[in-house]
């Protein structure tokens, strides 16, 4: 796809500095710094409750951080007090327009067909023409292997198919980066492969991806970088070889050995 190339510009695709977030008395993120350049494929791993999903959700401000800065392209936000002002909300909307987000539970709009799901943002947020949006959506559905399902209802698709539609929907926004929040965790084991295959093809195209995942083998194979979170802080950050083969900390070693023992 050419648009992945078009959007490349100077500076990182997105960056996060000093991010903190608490839920009640629970400090979920304790000062996170992370930045992704265009073309990076970053897997974020860690135990349940380590804060990786919260971190990902803070980027499009689905969760409002208590402090810290999130930058996407030219737009930057440093919300205070866990809420957004009206002006910040407008900035957040612009940032979201440059990001695709794929949820664990797909979150397709059940009252719209597959095609309608994919053309919604291009038509009603980005104000593109219907013909253009439909053409692009058709191509994207073909890319995720669901061209023949364009007029189906989400309720009639398997989990794996729904997730692939969700990926097409995210791509339709022509995002600079796509965020995946445990994209295969809600799927039956036999459906995981078809979704991972699509994500892998996006990585191979040179798209910028941030993936929160428990699929260690997948993370090792597709990522350019792996980030391991532990109790709201980044414990390891490096190439897959560095993190998986030679983790620096004991905690990382313990977490990884537990995982690879289980999956093999």
């Amino acid at each position: 796809m050419t648009d992945a190339v078009e959007t490349k510009a100077v500076g990182p695709a997105l960056s996060i500095t000093g991010l903190r977030k608490t839920f009640g008395a629970n400090e979920v993120l304790r000062g996170i710094d992370l930045s992704a350049r265009d073309g990076d494929v970053i897997s974020m791993i860690g135990a349940s409750g380590s804060g990786k999903s919260t971190l990902l959700r803070c980027i499009p401000m689905l969760e409002i951080p208590d402090s810290g800065t999130v930058t996407v392209g030219e737009d930057s936000l440093s919300p205070k007090g866990g809420r957004l002002t009206r002006a910040e909300e407008a900035t957040a909307r612009r940032m979201r327009g440059h990001l695709g987000f794929v949820f664990q539970n797909f979150n397709l709009w059940t009252h719209r067909t597959v095609l309608q799901n994919v053309i919604e943002a291009p038509l009603f947020v980005q104000n593109r023409s219907r013909a253009e949006a439909v053409d692009e959506a058709t191509a994207l559905l073909e890319k995720v292997g669901l061209a023949e399902k364009r007029d189906a209802w989400p309720a009639h698709l398997s989990g794996g198919q729904q997730q692939r539609v969700a990926i097409a929907r995210a791509l339709a926004q022509r995002p600079r980066a796509i965020l995946f929040d445990e994209p295969t965790s809600a799927l039956d084991p036999e459906l995981v492969g078809e979704v991972l295959k699509v994500i892998r093809s996006l990585a191979e195209e040179g798209r910028t991806l941030l993936i929160v995942t428990h699929e260690m083998g997948f993370a090792r194979d597709v990522s350019s970088r792996v980030v391991l979170l532990h109790q709201g802080q980044i414990e390891e950050d490096g190439t897959p070889e560095q993190v998986f083969a030679n983790p620096r900390s004991d905690r990382a070693r313990a977490f990884l050995s537990g995982h690879f023992d289980r999956t093999r």
């Binding site: 979201r96 990001l99 949820f103 979150n107 397709l108 709009w109 943002a121 980005q126 929907r169 926004q173």
Partner: peptide, 16 residues
């Protein structure tokens, strides 16, 4: 809640 969040991440306004 997920349907609304999907709207938010696509950049829709509250009214939309």
């Amino acid at each position: 809640k997920g349907a609304v969040e999907a709207g938010r991440v696509s950049g829709m306004t509250r009214f939309a």
